[in-house]
Each structure stands twice: as structure tokens, then as C-alpha cells.
């Protein structure tokens, strides 16, 4: 610091003034911080915010993208039976997957916290396998398992004397298969979140509850659940967003079939917008997700900020 100012003194006066101004600007923390953040802002502005508004604009064009048609695309979609099915299927897929994932994750986290922490590592590693394999590849594995002609599952069913099931060829079994794959993939994430939350519950609370005569279930509902409520709600809402917008599973497992009875928003938008080339209609399909996601995001954000406040207090 000291020798640097000595160098500055030896410079001509006008340069010194300019340099010190630049230096003062650079030494201000906010300037440096803004500079450090600028690549992020550029990226988000260019490839998230701009596309989002561009999607809105696209959704209001006609098929050839030559004319502005207002909300006609949305009205057209809502009149189609296929699209109504898509809405139903997306909600069914997201809600039932998330409920199951949350329940199984909760059970797994409790099982995990029962065993000594030294042994938890290996079990946690094994249970995280579904979450680590790229979803597109593991869905392909599931697709083989469901394969109708030489299906591994049907082999087991036949061995038990039950007739083969056309897993992915009929609407309801196919929908259940989608949910199964999603639950298989996502339960580990819930387990990890809940396990971390369970570790933060002070042991004294359980001791106090035990002294008051609380049983296992009472401890769970009056100590554990209230203490980790925030983590539960943030995880569930976040997972709802991700599951709602899921693309890979449906695309690889059924590609929307049979007869569009397993399409969800993302796959339908892809089919309409990119495969059939009706980009405005595809953009409107994907924008239908937005209001629901915005509501979920609002609640996630409220919980996150509240948790932040609790932590600082």
C-alpha cells in the first residue's frame, strides 16, 4: 500500500488524478461486486429473461409466424380434448409422484437416522444411485424392463401365473409406469433433504418428549414434523415445479402414446412446437405451465426467506 502511493507521487499530476479516480471507483466494493456479477446477469438476461418474453411474443403469433393473433392460440388449445388430457395428465403425474416421493423420502430418512452414522455412508451411497444415473439413460433401462414382448416384469408375473400386462401400451398402466419411474428417480433427493433436516432437530426435544411419555408416532407428529416443516414445504414445492416440467421420462418411455394419453406439458410442447413445426402453438403449451409454476415459486420463495430470517434471528 505504502510503496504503491510512492509510485503514484512520482507520476505527472493529471495522470495521478485520473488514476486515483479509477482506483477509488475500483476500490468501492459495490463496483467490484457488480463487475463480478455481470457475467451472470448477462447470461440470465440473454438466455433466460429474453427467451421467456420471446416465448410470450411467439405464443401470440399465427402458425406461419406472420400475424399477431392475440390469445387465439390459448383459446384454441383449451378447446381441444387432447390438450385437456394433457392438463389432467400433467397434474396427475406431478401430484402423485411428489406425494409418493415425499412419503417414501420421509420413511427412508427416518430409517437412515435410526442406523449409526458411521454406517450411513454406504447406505446413502447405494440409495443415491437412481439420482446419480442420468435420467435419460435410466429411463431407457426402465423401458427395457417394461418391454412388452420380452419384458422382465412380465416374466415375473408369468412365473406367478398372472397374464402379461402391456405396460406402456394402455393408458392407465403407462401413466402408472411414468409415475413409478419418477418416484424411483426422485425419492433419493427427498431422503437427502429430510435427512439433513432431521439431523438439525435437537436431541433434547426428543428426550423431553420421551419424558412426557410420547410414543414414536407422537414424537414424529409433535416434534419432527413441526421442526422440519419448512424443509418439507420447500422440498415439496421445488419438486412439484421440476416434476411438473419433466420431459425426459415421458419422452423416452412412451413419447406421449398411446393416443396422446401420457403426454405432459413439456412433451406436448415439444411435439407440437418442434416436431410438427407449429412454434407459436408449442410456445403457448409451455406457457400454460407458467401460472402454476409461478404460484409454487411464490410459496417456495416465501418459505426460503422466512427460513433465512429464522436462521439470522
Amino acid at each position: 500500500m505504502a510503496d504503491r502511493s510512492a509510485v503514484a507521487v512520482s507520476l505527472p499530476p493529471h495522470r495521478m488524478v485520473r488514476r486515483s479516480f479509477m482506483r477509488r471507483l475500483l476500490e468501492r466494493r459495490s463496483t467490484v461486486a457488480l463487475l463480478m456479477c455481470s457475467p451472470l446477469f448477462l447470461l440470465i438476461a440473454g438466455l433466460v429473461v429474453y427467451p421467456a418474453f420471446y416465448a410470450l411474443y411467439l405464443a401470440m403469433l399465427n402458425r406461419r409466424m406472420t400475424q399477431f393473433v392475440g390469445l387465439d392460440n390459448f383459446a384454441f388449445l383449451l378447446k381441444r380434448d387432447t390438450f385437456r388430457l394433457v392438463i389432467f395428465q400433467s397434474c396427475l403425474f406431478a401430484v402423485s409422484s411428489v406425494v409418493l416421493k415425499s412419503f417414501l423420502g420421509f420413511v427412508l430418512a427416518h430409517l437412515m437416522s435410526n442406523i449409526p452414522s458411521g454406517r450411513q455412508r454406504i447406505w446413502r451411497g447405494l440409495l443415491l444411485v437412481p439420482w446419480v444415473i442420468p435420467l435419460a439413460l435410466s429411463t431407457l433401462g426402465w423401458w427395457w424392463l417394461f418391454d412388452p414382448s420380452y419384458s422382465a416384469f412380465n416374466y415375473l408375473l408369468n412365473a406367478l401365473g398372472i397374464a402379461s400386462v402391456p405396460w406402456l401400451g394402455v393408458a392407465w398402466p403407462a401413466r402408472l409406469c411414468m409415475i413409478t419411474v419418477n418416484v424411483w428417480f426422485g425419492t433419493s433427493f427427498f431422503m437427502i433433504m429430510y435427512l439433513a433436516a432431521l439431523k438439525s432437530v435437537p436431541e433434547q426435544l426428543y428426550e423431553a418428549a420421551a419424558i412426557d411419555g410420547a410414543g414414536t408416532f407422537q414424537k414424529m407428529f409433535y416434534v419432527t414434523v413441526p421442526m422440519i416443516r419448512n424443509v418439507i414445504s420447500v422440498t415439496v414445492l421445488y419438486s412439484l415445479i421440476v416434476t411438473f416440467a419433466n420431459f425426459d421420462i415421458v419422452r423416452i418411455l412412451t413419447n406421449g402414446g398411446p393416443e396422446s394419453k401420457t403426454h405432459v406439458f413439456a412433451t406436448y410442447a415439444f411435439q407440437v412446437g418442434i416436431q410438427s413445426g407449429d412454434i407459436p402453438l408449442g410456445a403457448s403449451v409451455s406457457l400454460f405451465m407458467f401460472p402454476l409454476l409461478a404460484v409454487f415459486a411464490y410459496f417456495v420463495l416465501r418459505n426460503v426467506t422466512r427460513r433465512g430470517k429464522e436462521m439470522t434471528v
Binding site: 459495490s30 461486486a33 427467451p51 421467456a52 416465448a55
Partner: peptide, 28 residues
């Protein structure tokens, strides 16, 4: 380096994290 509005910007980053990519793939 908390500067003016950094809290809002952090929230904004979190919000973009919540935007699923299947919402963006057609404009992209």
C-alpha cells in the same frame, strides 16, 4: 460484498433456478 439491491438480485437468481428448462426450450 453486499451492495445496494444485492438481496433482490440473489432472489432473482433463485427465481431463475426455479424456471424449468422445458419452459424455455421453444424460444431457445
Amino acid at each position: 460484498m453486499g451492495f445496494k439491491g444485492s438481496q433482490t438480485l440473489a432472489t432473482g437468481v433463485f427465481l431463475t433456478y426455479l424456471i424449468p428448462n422445458s419452459l424455455l426450450f421453444i424460444p431457445l
